[in-house]
Amino acid sequence: MGLEDLSHNFLTGNVENLVRWARRNSVWPATFGLACCAIEMMSAGAGDFDLARFGMEVFRASPRQADLMIVAGRVSQKMAPVLRQVYDQMMEPKWVISMGVCASTGGLFNNYAVVQGVDQIVPVDVYAPGCPPGPETLIHAILTLHEKIRTGAITRRKGEGLGIHLDPTGISGKENAAAGASMKMVGNK
């Protein structure tokens, strides 16, 4: 190979592993606090629990700079389109943690106002149980996600688009083309 002649230190490896390693160690969450869980999410970022240990202390206010959306709290019917829009604005690759039972299943609030599980709107990678999950649970969920990133495919993730049900009949006019494109993406698993 000719590598023997090089005099400096070097490492060899797959590009894939390098990319996964880099992605795993710099996951930037979006600040998407909704309810009680958001407070625990902030606690996790503060001094006592210190998310900076995992390269995650930078909560980005702009979704375009974030890789991870932590859906922290119950999602109301009014918030659902906003949440989806924030998700759409995030750059690939992106991940979602559904934090707490309200985000995961609707939890205690089985009623008209709350979306029964955020996975009806966006694909979820990790579900964190608890009401609210303590910072430790959130950190566990984040570590699980890190493991998932480390072992997953770098180009297309498994289950991409699963669980999303866009209703084309509810969309009219100009937006049809864009919606059609996203529908195709969903189907192209």
């Binding site: 309810a35 709290g73 019917q77 609030f109 106002a113 609210p132």
Partner: peptide, 27 residues
């Protein structure tokens, strides 16, 4: 944007269960 319908939920929970519901209002 965070309307949770707690007042409706409270009508379906007994008085013993009720405080579980209201505690999640002002977190």
């Amino acid at each position: 944007y965070l309307h949770t319908g707690m007042e409706k939920t409270a009508e379906g929970l007994s008085y013993i269960q009720g405080s579980t519901n209201v505690t999640r209002m002002d977190y």
